[in-house]
Computed example of a mutant assay.
Amino acid sequence: MAGVLALLCVGGGITGYVLYERAATPDRSAPDVVVVSYLQATFVARDDNRAKLFTCTGLLPSVDDFRNQMVSRERELDAVFSINIEDVHVTMTSKSSAAVQVVVRRSATIDEVQQSLADAWRFEVVDQKEGWRVCSGERLR
């Protein structure tokens, strides 16, 4: 009886560990997935630690500056922007690198009027051992 109980405990522990690893590991399975996840962590959750999980080297200065400008603008307008990531297009540049273009739409109600701004971005991503990572990003004019 003790042997069966021990096996159940070990099996439960292994199952718990596997399920935890799946839930805790960020999805970096494709270029578009990693870019959208990075942007959601940066602009929606505003979680730098989460955003770093999707990058090659940490925060991207151009994206970080844009987020800081957005936060300042929210304070000035006394509004909170709703962020949507739209029109995601992937162009494979090699087997292990790609360019991803997206539109980041900021929407808010200001003075009782719904307003929206859209900015086009281009990101360079590479496939590393643990999956795809965002290495650079620039806002397109």
Score class of each variant (00 low, 15 high):
Glu76Trp: 08
Gly3Ser: 10
Asp127Met: 05
Ile83Pro: 02
Lys129Asn: 07
Arg122Val: 15
Glu130Lys: 14
Gly11Cys: 15
Asn49Cys: 05
Phe81Ser: 01
Gly12Leu: 12
Val63Asp: 06
Val103Ile: 14
Ala23Trp: 03
Arg67Tyr: 10
Gly12Val: 11
Gln40Thr: 06
Arg67Glu: 09
Asn84Val: 10
Ile83Cys: 03
Asp78Gly: 02
Val126Pro: 07
Phe54Gln: 02
Ser37Pro: 01
Leu140Trp: 00
Val102Gln: 02
Arg105Ala: 15
Leu19His: 06
Ala23Pro: 00
Thr109Arg: 11
Gly11Val: 14
Val80Gln: 15
Pro61Thr: 05
Phe43Lys: 08
Val134His: 03
Val134Tyr: 06
Cys9Tyr: 15
Gly3Gln: 09
Phe123His: 09
Ile83Asp: 03
Glu124Leu: 13
Arg50Asp: 03
Ser62Arg: 13
Leu140Met: 03
Val10Pro: 03
Thr93Cys: 01
Asp65Thr: 07
Lys129Ile: 07
Ser96Ile: 13
Thr15Tyr: 15
Val126Asn: 12
Asp87Glu: 11
Gln69His: 13
Trp132Asn: 00
Asp27Gln: 01
Lys95Cys: 05
Thr91Ala: 06
Ser136Tyr: 07
Ser62Tyr: 05
Met70His: 04
Val102Phe: 02
Ser72Val: 09
Ser94Leu: 07
Asp119Val: 08
Ala30His: 04
Val104Ser: 07
Cys56Ile: 03
Glu76Ile: 11
Leu8Phe: 14
Lys95Asn: 12
Ala23Val: 01
Leu77Glu: 01
